[in-house]
Simulated scan of single mutants.
Amino acid sequence: MKLFGIAGYSGAGKTTLIENLLPYLTASGLRVSVLKHAHHGFDIDRPGKDSFRHRQAGAAEVLLASSARWVLMSELHDAPEPSLAEYVARFSPCDLVLVEGLKHEAIPMLEVYRPANGKPPLWPDHPHIVAVASDEAPLPAVHGGRTWLDLNDAETIARFILATVQTGGKTHADL
């Protein structure tokens, strides 16, 4: 199973990009999973529901299942957050895991960068960012040899990701 990260600040368009990439990646015959990391607390459950009540009563895990889908909710109960490897080990077999967030992991990543957001780019100080997808053209010689992609061209970005994971994380500049 190959890992490829999508990094960037909140509001840059990471989720939308992944949503646009998935049809191209799956059309290539790959089974693709997504790991979405949130920096804030979240809950997919609702107070009053049976599964919520079970978790509140102290269950370590609750598996909620139907004929259409299932979800496993695990409570950390003050334990340390699992590592990327521990999260990935929970996935069913697949060809590619797109990791949204977890920008400090040592996996090949694409930064979604929108200068209009007013946030500094990650790529100058992040050795694992192999490409930048942006809605603005790069300034000459500023992007440090990283591939600069049009954020609105999901097909080209998908081809770049496929080529990168097929070469073991090396970009065309490394070959």
Rank of each mutant, 00 (worst) to 15 (best):
Q166I: 00
D150Y: 00
L139D: 03
L102D: 02
H128M: 06
A12Q: 05
P47N: 14
D45S: 09
V112Q: 00
V165M: 04
Y113Q: 01
R146H: 07
G48H: 06
V165H: 03
M109Q: 15
P121H: 04
V71H: 10
G13L: 08
N152C: 06
H37G: 09
L139I: 01
P140K: 01
L96N: 04
F91R: 07
Y87C: 15
H37M: 06
D78Q: 14
K170A: 14
K119I: 04
E19Q: 02
S92T: 13
N20S: 15
L22G: 04
Y87W: 15
T15W: 05
A59N: 04
L162A: 07
T156W: 00
V165S: 02
A158F: 09
E81M: 11
S66L: 01
R46T: 05
T26L: 05
S10A: 11
C94F: 04
I161K: 02
D78C: 06
C94T: 07
V99F: 09
D150F: 00
S66W: 00
A173S: 09
E19A: 02
S74G: 14
A106W: 01
L151K: 07
H143L: 03
G169Y: 04
A158C: 08
E111G: 00
K170C: 13
Q56H: 11
W70M: 13
G48N: 05
E86L: 12
A85Q: 15
T26F: 04
A7W: 05
H54C: 10
E19N: 01
R69W: 13
V97F: 07
E100K: 00
G5A: 03
I18G: 06
